[in-house]
Amino acid sequence: MEDDRVKLTEKQKQARRSRSIAIALVLAALVILFYVVTIVKMGPDVLTRPL
């Protein structure tokens, strides 16, 4: 079967790579952000409350 998917140019691949790195950094920052916000809003005992 012939491959009819979109073929990216080198320039598009380079741009995608830089965007992917930026998205990864933003996601990592968001993980840290929500972790810190959880501690600030709910206190350090957030995991020791009764079920």
């Binding site: 073929k7 741009a15 995608r16 930026a22």
Partner: peptide
């Protein structure tokens, strides 16, 4: 359009700076 013979795409050119 995207699955035509050339299968090229005009998008995906934006850098982080452009966004």
């Amino acid at each position: 359009m995207m699955t035509g013979q050339d299968a090229t795409w005009e998008g995906g050119m934006g850098s982080v700076g452009d966004y």
